[in-house]
């Protein structure tokens, strides 16, 4: 496998390709939305058309679990989430930035032992192929849902754990822990497995044997990236709706 540069800060180890990937994805999302909405026209064309389609698509996702008035409140959040994950997934498939390393660089965490394994250092990775990024997103959504539930109706929120009887409390607790865990693992595992397979086919394969499977897998990765961005956004809105919508 390629080496991935790391920096130590306050005793924590930060993965450089993931940080570059996160910032790059955020810039792409920002440019896309800002450029599309700077000069809105009554008859949309080009980029504005695309973003309006995306907006309607995300509105459709939110309408699954919210009424249309509440859906408008979460529209910005859900659109940001969807665009970030979608673009991050696709960039990971399309971009591969590697450089050659021949000397140990201690400040980037590349030691002599690592260099015996590989000489390629990777500088861009899909942020969603890193477990830390997806766990942060899933836990933040889960915490947001819980806080919204408590603010909205604290009594109803806590009594929900005792429904239909107090014996169910442990099961509710496991459910609340399992939700963010699977939410994060689902996105990460799909993108990570895809990227590792692409890397293996490029590194160890040759065009005759792995060329055709690589092409098929690249196409399938684009599809998986879209589906997972969709599923992540749907589940985020469902988890928030479970805690905030009263009549269920």
């Amino acid at each position: 496998m390629e080496l991935s540069p790391k920096v130590e800060f306050l005793g924590l180890s930060f993965d450089v390709p993931v940080m570059i990937g996160t910032v790059f994805t955020a810039i792409v999302v920002l440019l896309l939305t800002v450029l599309a909405t700077r000069n809105p026209k009554m008859r949309p064309g080009g980029l504005q058309n695309l973003v309006e389609m995306l907006l309607d698509f995300v509105r459709g996702i939110l309408n699954i679990s919210f009424d249309s008035k509440t859906a408008e409140k979460y529209l910005g959040f859900a659109l940001t989430l969807f665009l970030f994950i979608f673009i991050a997934n696709q960039l990971g498939v399309m971009l591969m930035v590697t450089t050659e390393v021949h000397h140990p660089i201690p400040s980037l965490g590349i030691t002599g032992d690592d260099l015996e394994e590989s000489h390629a250092a990777v500088w861009f990775k899909s942020p969603t192929a890193d477990l830390n990024v997806t766990v942060v997103m899933a836990v933040a959504i889960s915490l947001f849902a819980h806080f919204m539930g408590i603010f909205r109706d604290a009594k109803g929120y806590f009594s929900h754990y005792m429904q239909p009887n107090p014996l169910m409390f442990p099961i509710h607790l496991v459910d609340e822990i399992a939700k963010p865990t699977t939410h994060a693992l689902r996105l990460w595992a799909n993108i990570f497995a895809g990227e590792v397979l692409i890397t293996i086919m490029i590194t160890y394969g040759n065009p005759l044997t792995t060329g055709a499977p690589l092409l098929v897998w690249l196409g399938y990765s684009l599809f998986v990236g879209t589906i997972q961005a969709y599923v992540f956004t749907v589940l985020a809105s469902v988890y928030i709706a479970q805690k905030t919508v009263q009549d269920h």
Partner: peptide, 10 residues
């Protein structure tokens, strides 16, 4: 399919 696929892919 996205939900079912998750567990094996994990």
């Amino acid at each position: 399919i996205g939900l079912v696929e998750a567990v094996p892919i994990i």
